[in-house]
Simulated assay, not measured.
Amino acid sequence: MAAVIDLYIEYAKSRLEPATLEERKRYFQSFAESHGFRGVNDRECLPYHLTAWVDSHTEWESDWTRSHAVSIIHRPFN
């Protein structure tokens, strides 16, 4: 997964404002630290991994923040 995220960051550099990209990088880094070693396939990359990562961030109290984090992580894989 980390390789897909890295490719997305390269793609996004010319399309996003620097502040927006930096915000997304923080989410990507956190997710990659937890699951970046996994392959992008239907055996190693499961919805559970994303929800477990979100649930591990107890500081994200609002539904908006949690939903925003999920939408950021979805982008490289869409």
Score class of each variant (00 low, 15 high):
S34N: 10
I73G: 00
P76E: 00
D42I: 09
W53M: 13
E44M: 07
Y27W: 13
N78M: 05
Y11E: 02
F77L: 12
P76C: 06
D55R: 12
E23Y: 15
C45E: 00
K25M: 15
V54F: 12
T20I: 06
D6Q: 07
D63S: 03
Y8L: 03
Y27A: 11
L46K: 14
A69G: 03
V70G: 04
F31T: 06
A3Y: 10
K25G: 08
H74A: 07
W53C: 11
A32P: 03
T20N: 09
A3V: 08
E61H: 06
I9E: 02
T65Q: 10
R26I: 15
L7F: 06
L16R: 09
H49V: 04
G39L: 12
E59F: 03
T65G: 02
A2V: 08
P47Q: 08
V40D: 03
R75P: 00
Q29W: 13
K25W: 10
T65H: 08
M1P: 04
L16M: 08
F28I: 10
S62C: 07
H57F: 10
W53G: 02
K25C: 15
N41L: 07
E59H: 07
H57E: 01
R75E: 00
V70Q: 09
H35C: 11
E23G: 11
W60N: 08
H57V: 04
D42G: 11
E59I: 04
L21F: 10
I72D: 02
I5Y: 03
A32H: 01
R75Q: 01
I9W: 00
S14K: 12
Y48R: 14
P76W: 03
P47I: 13
E61P: 00
G36I: 07
S14V: 15
M1C: 13
D6V: 05
E23T: 15
E44A: 12
N78Y: 04
R75Y: 00
H74S: 03
E33W: 09
A32L: 02
Y8K: 01
G36P: 00
E23S: 14
L46P: 03
I73D: 00
D42V: 06
Y11H: 06
M1G: 02
E33M: 09
S62N: 05
S71P: 00
P76K: 01
A69R: 09
R75S: 01
S56L: 15
F28C: 12
A12T: 01
Q29T: 15
H57P: 01
F28W: 11
E23A: 12
A3Q: 04
L16Q: 04
R24I: 09
R75T: 01
Q29A: 15
D55Q: 08
R66H: 05
T51V: 08
I5R: 01
E33V: 01
D55M: 13
V4G: 00
E23L: 14
F77V: 05
W53E: 02
S71L: 00
N41P: 03
A2K: 15
S30I: 10
H68R: 09
I73V: 15
A52L: 14
I72N: 01
C45N: 06
R24W: 04
A52W: 09
I9T: 03
H74R: 04
P76Y: 02
E44Q: 13
A3R: 05
E44T: 11
K13N: 04
H74Q: 04
P47D: 11
P18Q: 12
Y48V: 13
W53H: 13
R43I: 12
S30K: 12
A32Q: 05
W64S: 12
S30Y: 09
Y11K: 01
G36K: 00
E59D: 14
